[in-house]
């Protein structure tokens, strides 16, 4: 046991390490949402127009909608295997705080999907005509926004644990809740592309992320407990 950590934090650290190990050994699953993101952003020039001048106008929206859909798709990897093989049940019975364990799971999920998406997003934006100076702003907005998306998604995934073929239902539950993140995220990207100060929407994204960090694991653990009953 590493020094200084309370048992709950130590358990959370172990869960996080386990999830990251598992993901590294199955890199295909980690890459899938990123490939999906790349394909969706490719569809827009094909559907709208190849002219960069026009694409530049829709680029923030395209990048954010694609990121939102990709993170929604990635939610399947959050609980699916653990719910199937009973690991989640063991977590609930372990005597450790389920809230902390789910927070750790969500954190590792963000490291595996949100962070790579944040790095991919400027590539897609550049291909859609974003100026080079906007890269750091886009990375920051997607990185912070996807924290909130992962946490909201964790609630949705916990709510639909006991539901068969839950994919569509999960989207219907999660997407309305994600609207504020989409609005502020796309706004920050838009400002970054225009070369303006993105602090205001970034602060709002950060506020939503902090609210999510505080409350979402509680809601998720309540939902998981109900679903496991």
């Amino acid at each position: 046991m590493s020094a200084g950590l309370t048992p709950a934090l130590e358990a959370a650290r172990l869960v996080m390490a386990r999830d990251l190990h598992l993901a590294i050994r199955r890199p295909g699953e980690v890459l899938q949402p990123l490939v999906f993101f790349a394909i969706v952003t490719t569809l827009f020039p094909l559907a709208i127009t190849p002219e960069l001048a026009q694409l530049r106008q829709v680029a923030p929206g395209v990048v954010w909608v694609a990121a939102l859909l990709a993170s929604l798709l990635a939610l399947e990897f959050l609980y699916r295997d653990d719910a199937h093989d009973g690991t989640l049940e063991q977590y609930a019975l372990s005597g450790q705080s389920l809230t902390w364990l789910l927070f750790a799971k969500t954190a590792s999920h963000w490291l595996l999907t949100g962070l790579p998406l944040a790095i991919m997003a400027p590539v897609a934006a550049l291909a859609l005509g974003a100026p080079k100076g906007s890269v750091s702003g886009i990375i920051a907005s997607v990185a912070i926004g996807s924290i909130a998306l992962s946490l909201l998604g964790a609630i949705g995934a916990s709510l639909t644990l006991g539901v068969r073929r839950s994919g569509v239902l999960l989207s219907i539950l999660t997407l309305p809740l994600a609207i504020p993140v989409l609005i502020f995220g796309a706004r920050a990207t838009q400002l970054a592309m225009a070369g303006e100060d993105i602090a205001a929407p970034l602060y709002l994204l950060g506020a939503i992320a902090v609210l999510g960090i505080t409350l979402a694991p509680l809601a998720a653990s309540a939902a998981v407990r109900i679903s496991l009953e």
Binding site: G162, A219, I226
Partner: peptide, 12 residues
């Protein structure tokens, strides 16, 4: 179960 799961959703 539907009651309690949907209740969490309503509160969220």
């Amino acid at each position: 179960r539907a009651d309690r799961v949907s209740a969490v959703l309503a509160v969220v």
